[in-house]
């Protein structure tokens, strides 16, 4: 089965802003967040999209 348009994970500085049900990675600094998002992007073959300054979502297209 192929997945289309699915949120695989969320990377955030503020846990209250991410959706319930996604795999959430809470980070402490912006740099850490960028790094985690980049790693997840590579691992999951997804794209890291920026929703706001402190939330990234990794989406499979």
């Amino acid at each position: 089965m192929t997945l289309e348009k699915l949120i695989l994970a969320a990377v955030t500085l503020s846990v209250s802003k991410v959706p319930v049900g996604a795999n959430v990675f809470v980070c402490e600094t912006k740099d850490e967040m960028d790094q985690v998002a980049a790693d997840l992007e590579a691992i999951l073959d997804g794209i890291a999209h920026k929703l706001s300054n402190d939330v990234y979502i990794i989406v499979k297209h």
Partner: peptide, 20 residues
Amino acid sequence: DGAGLYVDNIYIMNIGIPVR
């Protein structure tokens, strides 16, 4: 423009990570 990638004024996609 923020995370939005544009060619001229046409929106292409949202790229989050600054390195990318």
